[in-house]
């Protein structure tokens, strides 16, 4: 086991973009964990208004400049990491859990159950996630929890399709037949024999999806139905800042860059993990 791990680490280290991705993701996670403790102006994050220093350009004192109410953009962007990352992660995890559950049942049992579940997931795929999220926000009211629920609702079909295919391939393996011949029931076959052998592609898809999930969370923040101000979040920071363009460009460019960096980092990491865990799937 350790031999395989070492070899895997070696292969991962040989591709510098994967290592860069891992570095960016680790940095973002660190910022998300430390969050408010390391920002230079926590009082701005909490909502303090200082109109005297509004629209200061980036300088030594204000690294990313200040916004229309004199808050430090650097502090806001840093503090926004936690919300954006957590929301993105929650979307991916909830989507993966639902998708694995549905896909495993559909792929393992087949027949009309498979047909029914897959047609349902096709139906969910046809609904654009942004529109669905807006509908959910309209029905249940805006808010972080509802937003995560809404995005996850349109997120799981991708996992269901992936897992269904993998389960259908794995359940024909001889060790599954062997367990069946020993008298193992369906639950045991799925839990002990099929699912542990399809973890790799799911993990790869989760890391590749993280960037896109963060982007979707930011989009919803941008259109105003995600995280509510004053909680700083990259999408809503951008949304407020678009009124300041192009003269006070720094209020928009830095939250935007943060989104770019997160999407970029998670995609590089996902690519690296795919080469490591699931080399077949490489394009």
């Amino acid at each position: 086991m350790s031999e395989r791990l070492r070899r895997g680490l070696y292969r991962f280290r040989r591709s510098w973009v994967s290592v860069l991705g891992l570095g960016i993701v680790c940095l973002l996670l660190l910022i998300a964990i430390l969050g408010p403790a390391i920002v230079p102006h926590p009082e701005h994050v909490a909502g303090l208004v200082q109109t005297g220093t509004r629209f200061q350009p980036p300088s030594a004192a204000w690294w990313f400049g200040t916004n229309e109410v004199g808050q430090d953009v650097f502090s806001l962007t840093l503090a926004g990491t936690r919300v954006s990352l957590l929301a993105g992660m929650a979307v991916v995890i909830v989507g993966a859990v639902i998708g694995v559950f549905v896909g495993a049942i559909a792929g393992f049992f087949g027949g009309w159950l498979d047909e029914g579940l897959m047609r349902l997931s096709d139906l969910m795929l046809t609904v654009p996630s942004l529109i669905l999220a807006m509908a959910v926000a309209a029905a249940l009211g805006p808010g972080t929890g509802n937003m995560i629920f809404a995005i996850a609702l349109s997120w799981w079909p991708g996992y269901a399709r992936l897992v269904r295919g993998e389960v259908m391939a794995k359940k024909e393996e001889q060790f599954v037949t062997a367990a069946r011949a020993m008298g193992a029931g369906s639950g045991r076959l799925l839990r002990r024999h099929v699912l542990p052998n399809i973890v790799s592609p799911v993990i790869v898809k989760m890391s590749l999806d993280m960037g896109f999930a963060i982007l979707t969370v930011a989009s919803l923040g941008f259109v105003g139905i995600g995280v509510k101000p004053p909680t700083p979040e990259w999408g809503s920071l951008l949304s407020v800042a678009r009124a300041n363009m192009p003269d006070y460009w720094w209020t928009a460019i830095f939250p935007g860059l943060a989104i770019f960096l997160a999407v970029f980092g998670f995609n590089l990491l996902g690519d690296g993990l795919r080469d490591l865990l699931d080399p077949k799937a490489r394009r």
Partner: peptide
């Protein structure tokens, strides 16, 4: 009991 032909495919690699 049953013993299968292919000793590579009949043991679960994750167990």
């Amino acid at each position: 009991g049953i013993v299968f032909q292919d000793p590579y495919a009949s043991l679960n690699p994750r167990m």
